[in-house]
Simulated assay, not measured.
Amino acid sequence: MPLTLTLTEGVLPLGTEKLAVAQITDAFLKHHGLTGNETMRANITANVHVLPRDATFSGGRNFAGAWVEWKVPSFALAERKVQQGFFAEATSIIHDLSGGVQPKEHIYVNVVHAVDGGWNFNGQAMTNGEIVAEITKG
């Protein structure tokens, strides 16, 4: 389940991107009740994009932002309580790692859901039910 972390350069101190990915991954697992589930952890991937200040915009004008985006099966990040808890924690992670400098209102968290069966898990296309069965193995 890929996490894409996109940052305007300078939002986080250089080198803290890895810590951000680790903390956001842990928060995702925690809010889904999957802390310690190695099957799930192994299937969370991430990539980080740090963009120059002149390449990030709000309202058509340059600004410094942070974007936390997940691509997940439709059952992940689907419950409102999970969304609220995780989104708040992910926002706080970026804010805290920025030294409190990055405004929370310029940290964006979103999720993109895949259609059932349109997911590659453990090297093969799986339905939501098949993925849940794998995750249940721990």
Rank of each mutant, 00 (worst) to 15 (best):
G15Y: 06
V48I: 15
E105Q: 13
P103V: 03
K71N: 14
A114N: 13
V112I: 14
V101M: 00
A66K: 06
T91W: 02
L29Q: 06
T127R: 06
L29D: 10
P103H: 09
E79T: 10
L77V: 05
E17S: 04
T45G: 07
L77Q: 11
M40Y: 15
G33C: 05
E38D: 13
T35Q: 11
F75H: 13
N47D: 01
G33V: 08
Y108A: 10
L19E: 12
E9N: 11
I44Y: 03
E38T: 15
D26N: 15
H95Y: 13
A27D: 03
L19Q: 15
R80N: 10
R61Q: 08
S74P: 09
K104D: 04
F75R: 12
A90C: 03
A42Q: 12
E79P: 05
L51E: 07
G118R: 03
E69P: 00
V82M: 02
A42M: 09
A78L: 09
A76Y: 11
M40T: 14
A64W: 00
G100S: 09
A78Y: 07
V111L: 02
G85P: 13
E9D: 14
N122F: 02
F63E: 07
V48S: 00
H31Q: 06
W70Q: 11
K18P: 01
N37I: 13
F63Y: 02
G117K: 05
G59R: 09
G59M: 04
Q84H: 06
W67T: 12
V68G: 09
G85M: 04
V112S: 14
A22Q: 12
T39R: 14
V109W: 01
V68E: 08
N43A: 12
L12G: 10
P73E: 08
W70C: 06
N43P: 03
V11F: 05
R61V: 08
L29H: 08
P103Y: 05
N47V: 08
G15K: 01
Q83M: 14
I44F: 07
I107C: 08
I107V: 15
Q84T: 09
